[in-house]
Amino acid sequence: MISLRKVSKTYPRSGDALRGVSFRLRKGEFAFLTGPSGAGKSTVLELIHFQTRPTEGEVQVSRYSSGRIRRRDIPALRRRVGFVFQDFKLLERLTAAENVAFALEVIGTPRREIAGRVQRLLSQVGLAARARSRPSELSGGERQRVAVARALATEPRILLADEPTGNLDPDAAAGVFELFRMLNRLGTAVLMATHDADFVRRQRDIRRLELEGGRLVGDSAA
């Protein structure tokens, strides 16, 4: 489903972000992407989401390859790959429901279907009761749930999460993580970047990809 083959990424100003990284993530798999700040975790996620292209090597997501993808195919790819951020990236002027509806509208969902789908998505993440609340009225955990509901709006096969629990207290973090596990059990592949080594160690059943200095230094599945 996701395949990185000898991927390197060099930025003109900051230099090498990744060097020769290779791994595969199968359909429906859950994996942590770990490592200290600056290890290259975010770069891996951005490459999989085609926000940037590798300097060397190839990134393959489903049938899309970084070497051959056409500019006009990128939106279709991004609809298959949901993305959740540490800082939620919610629109403050919109309610929770409107934030989710925004994503549905953007991808061309018929207007008459939007309300029902928003209701289902918010119920899925346990936030149906807070549909009319603005982000500023929600806790950190609730905001992240709204962000997850929005990411699920396109019915993605893959969910990328960049430090999704980084801004949350332990209870809220555990709740969001449980949500990811539930989504994974329903068939969505999850790749979650985190630098919280203790948290990762406690989840022994989940594959761990360790990055350091832009290199893949460990893969618990290997």
Binding site: K89, A103, V106, I107, G108, T154
Partner: peptide, 11 residues
């Protein structure tokens, strides 16, 4: 956000 969720460029 539009770019992240897969909006087309023209949209």
């Amino acid at each position: 956000i539009m770019q992240i969720v897969g909006a087309r460029e023209g949209y």
